[in-house]
Design a protein around this nucleic acid. Structure first.
Lengths: 219, 219
DNA sequence: ACCTGAACACCGTTCAAGT
DNA sequence: ACCTGAACACCGTTCAAGT
């Protein structure tokens, strides 16, 4: 299990991935270069590529580490809807903390990370007691929503426009919406106020509950 | 309105964007380079950048053109759920035809393209007769699902693994699922058969209907 | 106004050479 | 086994120079 290390700061695949996550968080996907990584790790870029073959592999490994915590076990007696909330918020928060994760999870080939999330959500879907024939559809739909909403939320909150005070940003955006063309944006204008006061995590859960309601409503 | 053109193949912003869409469709986002574009348009790459300042602007313009058709008007007497299906499938198909669109729509700043989709969906949400206070949440959730599911579906179907016969691909993947560890993937194994026979567009609409059911169920 | 192409400061990836 | 750094074939972007 333990490998012999000459120096405490020996170059390992694990250390490379950890630093890659730091770089991705601070500088984004384009900021992650083998040369930038080499500078932080005080080595040559070729050394890194001995441990990690290419950039795709590096992104995949970083995603797995960043999301791993989100899909931990939930207590066996947790009601299924509540358990789904926990898993979904775990993924949502992981993407919010590491916005580059959103784009990676969607990208094939499906890593084991994605399969783990699918499995955990699916177990709770089954626990809801819905017909077996609907399980695949329901689990897939939930996963699409969770990854999609999480990714879009994270990119929105990191946009240059959103930088600074959140209240100011939403006030400004809501004001823009309220002044849109009355005919062309007849609907959008009416929800400007709801945009102004909304909470991202609460909206995310409310959308999730719409799906859960649809799955469990009496037929 | 009409600008004087010396040659029929004069370099215009519109022509650049059209060719950019062709390149994006065939070679993906990384295949789109100013030099590749210049070769196709038989000009220098600098000429292109006189019309389009940078790559981001080019991607934004290409996305707007590729999605524009999807958000056309629906007949005024169409039942709202049916109208939402039409809009959603339009976006879904546009992303399937142009997979790079998925990543672009999610990226801020929200282009007018995204606002148009929001407006059209919102009008139908209002037509469903649900409480006004829920309109923003419902429309946002639908949009997150549509963009998210569309993007993930498109990247999945374009993955190297999925290249070739779709039946063979799903058979192979379902076989892998069925052979997963019985404890760790207890749920996933049971839906392998549902994965094998699923239809992407039907699944997409089924997921959408879960949300619509949740929005309209009696409380 | 529109186009050209050299120049610059980067990339990812490969690989002969070292230890 | 692990690391180094030169070399290669690219990028996006800038910009002086042309028409």
């Amino acid at each position: 299990m333990a490998k012999t290390e000459r120096r405490s700061d020996a170059l390992t695949r694990e250390r490379i991935v950890d630093v890659a996550i730091e770089v991705l968080d601070s500088d984004g996907e384009n900021g992650l270069t083998f040369r930038a990584l080499a500078a932080r790790l005080e080595t040559g870029h070729g050394a890194i590529q001995w441990h990690v073959a290419n950039k795709g592999e590096l992104l995949k490994a970083a995603t797995a580490v960043a999301v791993a915590k989100a899909v931990g076990e939930t207590a066996p007696d947790t009601p299924p809807r509540e358990a789904i909330h926990t898993i979904a918020l775990g993924v949502f928060d992981a993407i919010e903390a590491h916005p580059w994760v959103g784009g990676q999870l969607a990208r094939p080939p499906w890593q084991s990370t994605m399969l783990d999330i699918f499995e955990h959500i699916g177990r709770q879907v089954r626990a809801l007691g819905t017909p077996v024939a609907t399980h695949f559809t329901s689990t897939t739909a939930l996963l699409h929503y969770i990854i999609g909403a999480g990714g879009q939320n994270a990119t929105n909150s990191r946009s240059p426009e959103a930088f600074g005070d959140r209240g100011d940003f939403l006030d400004g955006l809501a004001a823009q919406w309220a002044e849109l063309d009355a005919d062309r944006y007849a609907f959008t204008r009416t929800v400007a106020d709801q945009l102004r006061v909304h909470d991202d995590r609460a909206e995310f859960l409310a959308g999730l509950d719409l799906m859960l309601d649809g799955m469990t409503m009496p037929r």
